[in-house]
């Protein structure tokens, strides 16, 4: 029974840890499916986290915080669009720039506005998203098997967690069942064909980037307003890059993305849980090995040793109309 409880706890923290990855990963999915590489996910999450926590602290409302997180994150996505769609700049260079601007400005503005060494004020109860307890969760807590699963695993998360997982079928539906999704996929594979059909390539890509900005904004808000109760400098700590790795791992498909993020979240949860304690069969695993595993797996996958990850064909290439 103890083992069962431990497993439920690990899975519970897996869900909590994979939510920001999942949101960022789906965010990347929109922009990369539209043919815009985005390694600025990290930066956009960071500004989202900062804007969300500061707005929530100043206006005493979690929803104003979320709105601000989305707004600022979309603004950064638009900068990326302006550089890489309108001015046809190098998309990777632009993404790198956004990461730097985000890393620097969040700390500096945080220090200038709140004077807490780059932190934002600790959020009070009404200013962060509270856990939602499902009906009857407390009542059946002691029921074996079902009890812990229902009350620990399913119930008791914040609204953003449920939004994140609902975004998976929603993204699938947008991508494969709507006209916008079809055009977006087309613009990532063959923008010239979309252009010939009389649809604006630039506007489509901008719209995809707006979706990216919204999702990274929510991801950032989750980090600073659910997981942490305030912004801490560099709190994304490479999650944007892991999300990118998950996106490649998922071969740019929404449902796969969820499983990839859950896997990477699980690795994270397990490495926290197992810190220092030996595993059966393999003995003691260094924490650094577990931390590096998502990256190693991605490299192996990219090298084509576990299936082949084929990116959208027009990814990374600015579209130039025929002259």
């Amino acid at each position: 029974m103890d083992i069962f409880i431990a497993i439920v706890q690990i899975l519970d923290s897996t869900i909590r840890l994979s939510v920001p990855l999942l949101l960022a990963c789906l965010a990347g999915l929109y922009s990369e499916r539209a043919g815009v590489f985005d390694i600025g996910l990290e930066g956009k999450m960071l500004v989202g986290a900062f804007a969300g926590a500061s707005a929530a602290a100043v206006f005493h409302s979690a929803f104003i915080g979320l709105g601000m997180a989305i707004l600022i994150s979309v603004a950064f996505a638009m900068v990326h669009g302006f550089a890489s769609i309108t001015h046809r700049g190098n998309q990777i260079v632009s993404g790198v720039a956004i990461n730097f601007i985000a890393a620097g400005s969040t700390i500096m503005l945080g220090q200038a506005w709140f004077q807490q060494g780059g932190r934002t004020p600790a959020l009070q109860p009404g200013e962060r998203f509270e856990a939602i307890v499902w009906p009857g969760a407390d009542a059946i807590r002691d029921v074996p098997i079902i009890g812990p699963i229902y009350s620990e695993l399913l119930s008791g998360h914040s609204i953003l967690v449920y939004i994140a997982f609902l975004m998976v079928p929603f993204t699938w539906w947008v991508l494969f069942r709507t006209r916008f999704g079809l055009r977006m996929r087309a613009v990532g594979e063959n923008p010239a064909a979309v252009d010939t059909a009389g649809i604006s390539v630039a506007w489509l890509r901008y719209r995809a980037l707006i979706c990216t900005g919204i999702l990274t904004g929510i991801a950032g808000a989750y980090l600073s307003m659910v997981q942490n109760g305030g912004f801490v400098k560099d709190m994304t700590a490479g999650k944007g890059y892991i999300a990118l790795a998950a996106l490649i791992f998922a071969k740019w498909k929404p449902v796969n993305a969820m499983f990839a993020c859950l896997l990477f979240g699980f690795l994270d949860a397990a490495s926290i849980r197992l810190q220092g304690s030996p595993l059966p069969l393999v003995g003691k695993v260094p924490a650094q090995f577990m931390q590096a595993l998502p990256y190693v797996l991605t490299v192996i996958l990219l090298a084509g040793f576990i299936g082949k990850a084929i990116p959208p064909r027009a990814g990374g290439v600015p579209y130039v109309k025929e002259r």
């Binding site: 890489s84 001015h87 260079v93 632009s94 985000a102 620097g104």
Partner: peptide, 25 residues
């Protein structure tokens, strides 16, 4: 004191943005 060393990181980002991605603006 309001300007921390992170200002450099911002400048770095801006230089990459304007001299790199927006090179042709």
């Amino acid at each position: 004191p309001a300007i921390t060393r992170d200002m450099i990181v911002i400048i770095q980002g801006l230089v990459i943005l304007f001299a790199g991605a927006l090179e042709h603006m």
